[in-house]
Amino acid sequence: MTGRWAVTLLTAAGALVAGLAAQSAGAPLASLAWALLAGIGLSLMLRGFGLRIVGMLLVALAVGGVVWGVQSAQWVPVAGFAVAGVAALGFIAWGPGWRLRQRREREVQVDYWKAMDEGDDPTDEQGSHPGDKSG
């Protein structure tokens, strides 16, 4: 679960649970959850180091929500903020590498048409692979 969408959806789910639970309880804690959701929306527009900075801000908002929720005894929002905070750590840890990882995955993919143009058979079961000139 180190992909961008998994981290984003888990963080958003935690923030949404915290926001809806705090809103239904009438707690001012809901504004912090909506700010967390807005930060997640901002993270979708960023790449690289900026994503790491927004991740740090999201973790800080989530920790603030946990502390405020514990002080006001709002336990469901505390759980939502905790999930969002742990998931937002993914923005810090893996966020800047997501773009490079996608580029590497695209480079590893085999171009079967190019392999056939070079005379290789990519469907051959005898060990001949595209780009393998030994066979």
Rank of each mutant, 00 (worst) to 15 (best):
E118Q: 15
L42T: 09
L36G: 04
G39M: 01
W5E: 14
V86A: 13
G3C: 04
S24A: 11
T8L: 15
G64D: 01
R101M: 08
F49T: 10
L20N: 03
E118F: 07
E125K: 09
A35E: 09
P28G: 15
G90H: 07
P96A: 10
A79Q: 03
G55D: 01
A93N: 06
V110E: 04
Q74T: 09
K133P: 03
I40M: 05
L58P: 01
V59K: 05
E107I: 11
S31W: 15
D120I: 07
G131H: 05
S31Y: 12
L36Y: 00
R47G: 01
W34T: 14
Q74A: 15
P96F: 06
I40C: 13
F49Y: 08
V63T: 10
P130L: 04
D121W: 09
G90R: 06
A25K: 14
A35S: 13
L10Y: 05
G135V: 05
V54Y: 00
A60G: 00
S128H: 10
V76P: 00
V83Q: 02
V110D: 00
L58V: 06
Y112I: 10
F91L: 15
R52S: 12
V63P: 00
F81N: 13
A27W: 09
V59H: 00
V67Y: 08
G64R: 02
L46Q: 11
V86G: 03
A62L: 08
L36C: 01
F49A: 09
G26L: 04
S43A: 15
